[in-house]
């Protein structure tokens, strides 16, 4: 299995551990990722608020490079995925738009190279069966709420999962030996667009999600988006302070949880880079496994 790989800007800075864990996990699973050389920013989430054509053209360049190689594009970041998918669909829907975009990027893009969410690739191309057979450190008793965020499964006609009650990440957690916890905030927006520019709007949105996860009885949150990660992880203490709460909820990229279950070193997966301590819970998981082994 081979895909073009589009990490996006966040994965080379705030979400660097998503990039690291993606690459390590893909390697363990035998998926070849060909990183698009000299890829550019897809414009999320500013271009589409400024100019529609620019918002379509920026992702198109990356897709066009992948198309030349004959590869679909695996995209970990939910925001990048949403923008790339929007371009793919508009190009497929309209020959005129295809022409316009190809002229703007001065490359040919016909919509043949598809934008694929990394989660979709793992769950639906590789398959849960194949993943579970490779699990050697199951996430036993780890209660995980899957947080898909707002961009991964919308709009419904483009989605690879149900837009209201998506299941793919939950099923993945199950395949990794963990306990998926159902909750009602799987697709509620965390307000990443506002955390930096207008925190008084962004913070209540983060607060609601963290509280819901806590009330659902989760040990941790799994996510597929670096913007959600910054919001829920980096700002967790800040939001907690504002609302007088101590959530202590580690947030993982789903790729990190996959890495742990596949037996990779948590440090090497980049888990030490989180703001809310996530290594502790992994350590506990390993200790419990150790006890089970000796008993």
């Amino acid at each position: 299995m081979k895909y073009a790989y589009y990490p996006g800007c966040s994965l080379s800075s705030t979400g660097v551990e998503y990039d690291i864990s993606t690459k390590k996990v893909a390697e363990s699973l035998g998926i070849e990722l060909w990183e698009i050389p000299e890829w550019n920013c897809c414009g999320a989430s500013s271009a589409h608020l400024t100019d529609h054509l620019l918002a379509l053209a920026l992702p198109a360049r990356n897709l066009a490079i992948a198309e030349e190689k004959g590869l679909d594009v695996a995209i970990p970041c939910a925001a990048c995925y949403a923008r790339c998918k929007a371009t793919e669909v508009e190009v497929k829907d309209s020959k005129e738009m295809q022409k316009t975009i190809s002229e703007v990027i001065e490359r040919q893009y016909t919509g043949k190279a598809q934008a694929r969410a990394l989660l979709d690739v793992f769950v639906n191309d590789l398959g849960l069966q194949s993943i579970s057979t490779l699990v050697n450190k199951p996430l036993k008793d780890l209660k995980v709420v899957s947080y898909y965020g707002c961009l991964l499964v919308r709009p419904p006609r483009l989605g690879f999962d149900d837009a209201e009650d998506p299941q793919s990440m939950d099923k993945l957690i199950e395949a990794l030996g963990g306990t998926p916890v159902d909750w009602a905030f799987k697709t509620e927006c965390c307000g990443a667009a506002h955390a930096t520019t207008k925190s008084e709007v962004g913070f209540p949105m983060i607060e609601k999600i963290l509280t819901a996860a806590k009330e659902a009885g989760a040990d941790c949150i799994a996510t597929a988006c670096p913007l959600c990660m910054s919001n829920l992880d980096m700002r967790q203490t800040q939001v907690g302070a504002k609302y007088g709460k101590n959530y202590s909820l580690p947030v993982f990229y789903f790729t990190e949880l996959m890495g742990i279950a596949l037996g990779l070193n948590p440090e090497e997966l980049g888990i030490s880079k989180h703001f809310v301590d996530a290594l502790g819970i992994v350590k506990k998981l390993n200790e419990a496994a150790g006890r089970r082994d000796t008993a």
């Binding site: 080379s12 660097v16 100019d51 703007v104 001065e106 490359r107 030490s272 880079k273």
Partner: peptide, 30 residues
């Protein structure tokens, strides 16, 4: 944590991205 780099990473794209901006402006993009 290695999450922010002090200097920008500039891609070697032979000015393709700049051209995209220019082409969008040419088509009336503000």
């Amino acid at each position: 944590k290695g999450k922010l780099s002090p200097l920008p990473h500039t891609i070697k794209d032979n000015g393709e991205v700049k051209k995209i901006f220019a082409n969008v402006r040419k088509r009336g993009g503000k």
